[in-house]
Design a protein around this nucleic acid. Structure first.
Length: 558
RNA sequence: GGCCCCGUAGCUUAGUCUGGAUAGAGUGGCUGGUUUCGGCCCAGCAGGUCGGGGGUUCGAAUCCUCCCGGGGUCACCA
C-alpha cells in the first residue's frame, strides 16, 4: 500500500523528499490505511501543515485501488477500496524470503543435572527462532554443545563413587538425569561439612584429564544417564539437532589455533606464558586464551568449536548462540577473537541472549531444592489442563487417550506462549501458581479461537465469495490484521523476535473474536456468507501458522 | 568502580532499533452479554508524572545527556 501511495504522490506532486519513508500506517481506522504527514513540507514552504494537506489532497487523482483521500489536520489520509483489502487479505500470504545459511546452537546444557525452567526458556526460544528463520527462507543448521566435562560432572561422579552403592536409575525408579542430579545436589550439601570434598572433586578432574580408566568409565556411565534423560526431555519439547558436539571431544583442540594466532602476531604471551588477546581498544580488556601450561580454558574450546562447525558445515552467513545473557561479555570477547582469527566479522556472530527466570522466593537453588525442572513443569501443567477439560461440559466425557493428548497440547500451548511472548532480555519472576493461565493472552486462547472456527466451518457448505462495496467495521478490522501476517513474520525473522509472532497471533485472535461476536457467519445474509466463511478460513490458517512458529499444536477440537 | 541488560496502569506487559494523530493489551476489581455459529468468548467502567531531571525537534515512551532503582558481568570457572 505504501508503494502505491508513494508512487502516486511522486508522480502527481513535485515533492523533493523521500516519500516512501515518510508514509505511516495510522493506528486508528478512522485515519485510513496510509497517512502522509505534511510537517516537513510545512517547514520548507513556511506554510501551515493543515493548509498544505488540504490543498494537496484536492489536487490528487486517485488510482482504482484507492477509494478516497482525506485531509485530516496535518495529515493526508488514504483509504483503499474493500476490493483491494479483500484481495490482499484472502490471498496466500507471501513472506519475503531471505537466502541465508544460519547455524543455530542451543540449548547446550551441562550434563550433571536435569534440564530446568531456564533451559525451557532456552529450548523454546531456540526452537521458535529456528522455525521463524526457516519460514523466512533461511537454511538453519541446528547443533547442540554438550558441556560434558569439568568440575560439575566430577562432583556428581565423586558422590556416586562414595555413596552410590551400585545403584542405578532403574533400581531407584528414577529418570536417569534426575539420578545424576541427585548426586550433584548431594555434593553441594556434603561439601558444607566436608570442605575436603572440593579438593577430591578437583583431583578427579585431573585424573579424568590424565585419562584414568576407572574415572573415565564412571564418567561415561554418568554422562550416558544424563544424556538419556535429556533426550526424553528434548522429545517433549520437540528439540532436534543435526549434530551434537561434546566438549570432551573438542576442548583440547583449540590449542593449535591459539598458538598459530600468537605466531601470526594476533595475540601475545604474558609473563606467566599465557597466550592472551588485547581487546582494550574494543573495550573488553586483556583476556587469557590459553594457559601457560598449554591447557584449555572455556574460550579455547569455543574457538575450537567454531573451526569444527566450519569443517562440518562450511562457512555460514550467521552463527547464533542461544545462551543466557550473563554470558554477554564472554561472547563479545569470543566474537572479537574469531574475527581476528579470520572466521569473519563480529557481525556474523550473534548472541541470542535471554534474561534469568527467578522464583517468588528468589533465585533457584538446587541446594535448597527450589529448582523447577522442565519435565515436572510440563507434567503439572498437563494435570491442570486435564482438570480444566474434565470440568467443561463439552469435554467431560473424553476418552482417556484423547484427554491425555489434548491436555498435553494445551499444557504446551500455555507454557510456550507464556515464555515466548516476553521480551527475551527481561528477567522475570515465575510463579508456578499464578504465572500460567489458560485465559486471556495465552496459548490456549489461540487454540480455542482456532478450534471454534473449525467447528463453525465444519457445519457450513461451499459458498461463493461475493465482494461487497463496503465492509462492516469488524470485517474491515479483521481484513486489515490478516494483511499484516507476511510482514510480521518477515520482521520476526530479520530481528530474531519470536515475541512478534506471539503478539500478532493474539491481535489476530482478538480481532477475529470481536468479528465473530458481531458478525454471524452461518446465519449471515446470503451475499455475505461466503465472504465471512473465507475470512474465517484464512484466520484459522494464519493462527495455525503462528502456532506452528511458536511450536504449539493447533487443535481441531478442544 | 568500568561495561551490559531491565524500569510503561495494583500485577504481567506491547510499542523504543526506524520520533508523528487519542500510549495498546492481558490480568485483578466493578457492571453487563448466549431461546443464534463452542462462554477457555465478548461489551462497558475505573486504573498511566511511560523511573527522574536536562537537551535536540514543529513533534519524544522512542534520539542525546546526567542521575535513581533492580539484575548481570568484569577468573588461568563454565
Amino acid at each position: 500500500m505504501k508503494t502505491i501511495i508513494a508512487t502516486l504522490l511522486t508522480e502527481q506532486l513535485s515533492l523533493d523528499v523521500d516519500i516512501h519513508s515518510l508514509l505511516e500506517t495510522p493506528k486508528h481506522a478512522s485515519h485510513g490505511d496510509i497517512a502522509f504527514p505534511t510537517f516537513l513540507l510545512a517547514k520548507e514552504r513556511k506554510q501551515s501543515p493543515v493548509i498544505i494537506a488540504q490543498e494537496l489532497a484536492k489536487e490528487l487523482t486517485l488510482p482504482e485501488q484507492v477509494q478516497k483521500v482525506q485531509a485530516a489536520g496535518p495529515y493526508i489520509n488514504f483509504f483503499f477500496t474493500a476490493q483491494y483489502h479483500l484481495d490482499q487479505a484472502l490471498k496466500t500470504p507471501e513472506i519475503p524470503q531471505t537466502q541465508e545459511t544460519i547455524l543455530l546452537e542451543w540449548p547446550s546444557p551441562n550434563s550433571n543435572k536435569p534440564l530446568h525452567i531456564g533451559h525451557v526458556r532456552n529450548m523454546l526460544m531456540g526452537n521458535s527462532l529456528a522455525r521463524i528463520l526457516e519460514k523466512t527462507g533461511r537454511k538453519v543448521i541446528k547443533v547442540n554443545l554438550n558441556n560434558d566435562r569439568g568440575i560439575a560432572i566430577c562432583k556428581s561422579m565423586l558422590m556416586y563413587q562414595l555413596y552410590g552403592e551400585g545403584k542405578t536409575p532403574e533400581s531407584e525408579g528414577m529418570k536417569s538425569d534426575y539420578f545424576v542430579g541427585y548426586y550433584y545436589t548431594l555434593f553441594e550439601k556434603k561439601v558444607k561439612e566436608q570442605p575436603e570434598l572440593q579438593d577430591q572433586a578437583q583431583e578427579m578432574l585431573q585424573q579424568w584429564e590424565a585419562g584414568d580408566a576407572t574415572v573415565r568409565a564412571l564418567w561415561e556411565q554418568m554422562n550416558n544417564w544424563a544424556f538419556q534423560g535429556h533426550n526424553t526431555t528434548y522429545e517433549t519439547f520437540d528439540i532436534e539437532h543435526e549434530k551434537s558436539y561434546y566438549e570432551s571431544e573438542i576442548f583440547h583442540k583449540g590449542k593449535e589455533i591459539v598458538q598459530q594466532g600468537e605466531k601470526d602476531g594476533l595475540f601475545y604471551t604474558d609473563e606467566k606464558q599465557n597466550i592472551c588477546i588485547d581487546l582494550e581498544q574494543e573495550g573488553y580488556g586483556q583476556k587469557v586464551l590459553l594457559r601457560g601450561d598449554g591447557t584449555s580454558i572455556y574460550i579455547t574450546q569455543d574457538i575450537a568449536l567454531a573451526k569444527e562447525k566450519v569443517n562440518d558445515f562450511g562457512a555460514c552467513d550467521k552463527y547464533i548462540f542461544v545462551v543466557g545473557n550473563e554470558q554477554a561479555y564472554h561472547f563479545q570477547v569470543l566474537f572479537n577473537v574469531l574475527e581476528k582469527l579470520g572466521f569473519g566479522s563480529t557481525e556474523k556472530f550473534f548472541h541470542f541472549a535471554y534474561g534469568m527466570i527467578e522464583l517468588p522466593e528468589g533465585k533457584m537453588s538446587s541446594r535448597k531444592g527450589t529448582v523447577i525442572y522442565a519435565d515436572q513443569l510440563i507434567e503439572e501443567l498437563e494435570e491442570q489442563a486435564k482438570e480444566n477439560l474434565l470440568n467443561r461440559e463439552l469435554t467431560a466425557d473424553l476418552e482417556a487417550e484423547e484427554l491425555s493428548a489434548r491436555s498435553k497440547a494445551i499444557a504446551k500451548a500455555a507454557l510456550n506462549f507464556f515464555i515466548l511472548k516476553f521480551n527475551p532480555l527481561s528477567n522475570f519472576v515465575f510463579n508456578p501458581k499464578e504465572s500460567l493461565s489458560f485465559e486471556g493472552e495465552t496459548g490456549p486462547y489461540l487454540q480455542y479461537t482456532y478450534a471454534r472456527i473449525q467447528s463453525v466451518l465444519k457445519k457450513m457448505e461451499e459458498t461463493e465469495v461475493i465482494y461487497p462495496e463496503e465492509l462492516e467495521e469488524k470485517e474491515q478490522a479483521l481484513v486489515k490484521v490478516l494483511q499484516e501476517y507476511a510482514s510480521v513474520v518477515y520482521e520476526a525473522g530479520e530481528e530474531y523476535k519470536p515475541s512478534h509472532i506471539a503478539h500478532y497471533a493474539i491481535k489476530l485472535a482478538q480481532t477475529y473474536n470481536e468479528f465473530y461476536h458481531s458478525c454471524p457467519i452461518r446465519t449471515a445474509p446470503e451475499d455475505r456468507k461466503g465472504l465471512r466463511k473465507a475470512l474465517s478460513e484464512q484466520t484459522a490458517r494464519i493462527i495455525k501458522d503462528c502456532l506452528s512458529l511458536l511450536t504449539i499444536q493447533a487443535l481441531d477440537e478442544m
